[in-house]
């Protein structure tokens, strides 16, 4: 059970207003994507949720409890895998647990097995490919004691083939566990393929300018990306985004 709510959030750095009265909500077990051009303040939103920055205005609520400026309330997966090179895969995935309580290695091993990483449990990150490292980073955020997961453009550094593989893999794992997810991306197709809902961000200052509900049934597979309905959605979102860029 985990919901996240941003209410009337404003944040500026000096003269520059990044977020202006932003509202967004992620329901329990929902996969919500934030879609927006680079520099639209997506990272700032995560830093606010993560407690690294204080909002100038407004409240952030996790399960109806204000978490403004409180670090470590959410489980976070950054753009780069950010694995510790001196830890094995197994030691890396328990890191987020280790910060708050005694880690359960057995549970970690089971999760690695489900994620298809069992054979790599004792490997070091530098022995893995880029896609594998991202999988490890995702398993780490799943194992994290916080139930709400924030993913910050996790696949943006991967090549197109690996990216598609990773999206399918992410969906299978997510459909088993069903955690609430806030996913940041600038890839329209990725957002449609994965999400229940897409929030399109306008830039400077960022605000949710349009919301799309994606109700393709789950489990989804890659054929979906070639269907007429999918392409319709993509076109619709693309036009919205173009409007944002032209402003």
């Amino acid at each position: 059970m985990s919901t996240l709510e941003l209410e009337n959030i404003s944040k500026s750095f000096g003269e520059l207003t990044i977020l202006d009265h932003l509202d967004l909500r992620v329901n329990d077990g929902e996969f919500v994507s934030l879609l927006g051009p680079s520099g639209s303040g997506k990272s700032t939103i995560f830093h606010l949720i993560g407690g690294l920055y204080q909002a100038d205005h407004g409240t952030i609520r996790l399960d109806n409890e204000a978490i403004n400026g409180k670090k470590g309330s959410i489980s976070y997966m950054p753009q780069t895998p950010s694995l510790f090179p001196w830890r094995t895969v197994l030691e890396n995935v328990v890191l987020s647990v280790e910060l708050h309580q005694k880690p359960d290695k057995q549970k970690a091993l089971e999760m690695l097995e489900r994620a298809g990483l069992k054979d790599y449990a004792n490997a070091y990150p530098h022995e893995l490919s880029g896609g594998m490292r991202q999988r490890v980073a995702f398993v780490r955020s799943l194992l994290s004691p916080q139930s709400f997961i924030c993913l910050d453009e996790p696949f943006s550094a991967l090549d197109e083939f690996t990216r598609l593989e990773m999206q399918k893999w992410l969906l299978t794992i997510w459909e088993q566990e069903r955690p609430s997810v806030l996913f940041v991306t600038h890839n329209i197709e990725e957002a449609i393929f994965l999400s229940d809902r897409i929030l399109v961000l306008g830039s400077k200052p960022a605000n949710v300018i349009k919301e799309f509900t994606i109700d393709f049934k789950r489990p989804r597979n890659e054929e979906l990306t070639l269907t007429q309905e999918f392409l319709e959605k993509k076109k619709e979102i693309y036009q919205t985004l173009r409007g944002v860029l032209n402003d």
Partner: peptide, 14 residues
């Protein structure tokens, strides 16, 4: 590595 420090902060490390 600043990325790792950033991750640790987001994960709520003291």
């Amino acid at each position: 590595n600043p990325e790792l420090i950033h991750y640790m902060k987001m994960a709520g490390a003291t």
